[in-house]
Every structure is written in structure tokens, then in C-alpha cells.
Amino acid sequence: MSFVRVVDEYKRYQMGDSTIVANNGVSFEIEQGEFAVILGPSGAGKSTVLNILGGMDQPDEGEVWVDGKNIATYTTRQLTEYRRDEIGFVFQFYNLVPNLTARENLELATQISPDALDIDDVLDGVGLTHRRDNFPAQLSGGEQQRVAIARALAKNPKLLLCDEPTGALDLETGKQILRLLQQTAHETKTTVIVITHNSSIASMADRVVYIHDAKVREIVENPRPRSVDEIEW
């Protein structure tokens, strides 16, 4: 059974009289350790799916299986535990705690994680050992995003979810981030799901899920994903 399996998942938003269907029967599967990419136009419902996968939101209908458990049935507390133990999340706008240094931001995450990784290793891994005692405001956007990824990784999550992690970054930095994510997936057996608008990134992925108009239009498996450096933007 796949590590991630979303079955007929619906998410609707009630806006006064009208109902916005953000996810309309979304179904897809992602294997463990895959570097998956969700592609789709703005407003397609990508973030919605990812939030649900990340345990930050719950579907109205459908099943969301992660590591053999249907998190769609989880209580708030179970979801929190799920987030705490199994999920790493990276946002477009980093969302680092401004009052904490890079290292502390990682510490914030590992504090509550049962099998957290060594912070310094992780920081080293993202190449920020020398900036570890800097506050987010003292870091560049890319560095911040790397801290954010490091923070997500430090928890040693089973599932790393990134919502447009490169959206606010320049190309080169973006590449760096993507490389990091791909490495993570391939080297640590962590399943990584990344949302992007950039379809060229799709070639890096083991699997690409195309979402359009709240539905999964296509799932493409890529037996030979390319590395970042091979990609032409």
C-alpha cells in the first residue's frame, strides 16, 4: 500500500450562499520516499490538499491514508500528534519565529519531536552552520527558507510537505532548496511533497500530480527524475 493515499477527498468552503469546492473528489497515491510534486494553476486546490495531508485541515469527505492511517478520521488532538510526530511543513513565507535564532527555530521543532535529528547536523545539512546563531531578520530569504526546511527536517518527519517553497526566492536559491528537498527524499526515505507552479520542476519529481479545478487531472510517474542542475527554467 502506498505511503500516501488520498481517496475521493472533498473539501468545500461555505461562503455565504455559495459553496466553493476546493477539492472535488481528489484521489492520488504517493509511495514512501518519493519526491512528489503537485502542479496546478492558482486556486486549483493544491494548498487545500497539502493542508489536509499536513493535518492542518480536515476533508469534508473521503479518505486520507498516511502511513497506513486514515487521518481524515483523526480528532484535533490526533491531528496535532500527527503533525508533531510525522509531518514537516515548509511555507512559502518561511514563517520562522523572528525572535529565535536559526538554531533556536530548529530547536523549537525538535523540542516536541520524539525522534528529532541532531540540530547541528541538520543545519550543517542545509549548509547554515555558520549562520546558526543569526536571527531570521539577519538571514536572506533563501537562508530563511533553508532554516525553515531544516526546521521541518529536524523533526525527522515521515512526510515533508512544502507549499511553494521557492515562490519567494530567486532561481538559484530556489534550485538550492529543491536540491535539498530532492536529496532529503532520496537519502532519508522521507516522502516529500512539493507544491509548485513551475512545471519545469515536475521533471525532478518521482511523481507529479496535476490538479486542476479541484480535481486530479493526471498523475505522472517519472522513473528517472532529473536532478536540479539538469533542469532548464
Binding site: 496535532t80 503533525r83 508533531r84 509531518i87 514563517n95 519565529v97 523572528p98 516536541i112 523533526k155
Partner: peptide
Amino acid sequence: IRELSTIKVLGFFDNE
């Protein structure tokens, strides 16, 4: 609120 949301996402329990 952002900071709080962040730690929530990080998996802090409500009471935490």
C-alpha cells in the same frame, strides 16, 4: 498570531 500558528503547525498541542 503567525508565530502561534507556526508552532501549532509544528505540532504543539493546544495547551503547549
